[in-house]
Design a protein around this nucleic acid. Structure first.
Lengths: 213, 213
DNA sequence: GTCTATACATGGATAGAC
DNA sequence: GTCTATCCATGTATAGAC
């Protein structure tokens, strides 16, 4: 039985994660739906955390080349405008994940948020080792847009930006619920991202305003 | 044996969390060090997640009144400067947590980061129900500083800001390691916060720069 | 009201079958 | 090279002792 145990696990896991979230999905559920032995996950992926990485990889492998391509043709302006351009070039590839599967973008960002905060930095290592070239291309673009910002300061700002993003994604369901309850707004992931980009761009761009004293 | 089982659990948990983190600390370790039965945690706190909340409460109860007091005397300017003032008034109470116990600030923010992302929004509910008045005072100050920003837009920006903060705190150890390895900088929590405040203030303050086109 | 003993399902790991 | 049976430590729950 089972030609492609690995693939069936990923498919089952992805569906279950999408339905009920990462933390709420047990490995027994996954292996039961995939019709494989419980220990198969450990054998093929090493752990549940690695499984989430494998699920994410399918999305990264679609998104990252698109980002790479978008950055390739980009010649950013200097300043906030340039930062906006760089961030905007990430948006289309991200939204395009809806083509991978229904609600793909939302699923991806939710898994990313959970995985990032729950996996003690393993996801960061994975991203850098697998897509480091694209990440560095992105960094170079930001440096072009912000020649006045020192490298270490840019390092800080980038991590803060990633924090805004990951946190928003991980708690996007809560954000949607609150927006509906408190502001009568029905929003989706694209809305969240649309609000997020200016915020992050503003923070990264830094001193366009001098504090007088 | 044991007059104050609850207090002993909190003390043991706090020390162990500080030593080795939340996720790496088992309830069996906690109850062993506290010399209480394993099930005591469940009886007194309901779950491990609730225990982290109880530990955090001790810090919130010190910090929140200080914040409240600082906000009471504050008359913020309008614009980025005002936002800076509001955020600055949060910093001293936060750093003061080092007086609660050695390394108190770091421990608090780490637990806050972990707890926030791992507890499915329960921490947010807890904060709002226990310290809602102070939070709303903070919000009112920000609205004073940013009269042009609509309430729903401010809502978004605040959540993004919280995201930067919580994420940075949750991964502050990783940030410190990276800063040391890549930029030969020894940093502590106060440094992280010092870098974070301008970033967040910038993002919250929004359009001080018009995108031309 | 507190606390204990104990049971249970979970994520993780491994030795060995095939 | 795959997969299974099985073991371990964990968080959680509960029945009942005191």
């Amino acid at each position: 039985m089972s030609k492609h145990t690995k693939a069936r696990i990923i498919e089952a896991a992805e569906n279950l994660f999408a339905e009920q979230g990462y933390g709420q999905t047990s490995m027994r559920e996954i292996t039961a739906r995939a019709n494989v032995n419980l220990a198969s996950v450990n054998y093929h992926f090493g752990s549940k955390k690695n499984l989430i990485q494998a699920v994410l990889k399918r999305y990264f492998d679609v998104m990252m080349p698109q980002i790479d391509e978008a950055l390739e043709v980009l010649v950013p302006s200097v300043g906030r405008r340039g930062v906006d351009q760089v961030l905007q070039s990430l948006m289309a590839p991200l939204i395009n994940l809806n083509a991978v599967r229904p609600n793909g973008t939302e699923m991806f960002v939710q898994l990313l948020g959970k995985g990032y905060t729950e996996s003690q930095g393993h996801l960061r290592t994975f991203i850098m080792s697998s897509y480091g070239a694209t990440v560095h291309k992105l960094l170079a673009m930001l440096r072009t847009a912000l020649p006045a910002v020192p490298a270490d300061e840019l390092f800080w700002r980038l991590h803060f930006a990633i924090g805004s993003f990951v946190f928003s994604m991980a708690s996007s369901q809560a954000l949607k619920d609150i927006a509906k309850a408190d502001y009568q707004q029905d929003i989706d992931i694209a809305d969240v991202i649309a609000h997020l980009v200016p915020f992050v761009a503003q923070g990264i761009s830094g001193e366009c305003y001098q504090i007088e004293d």
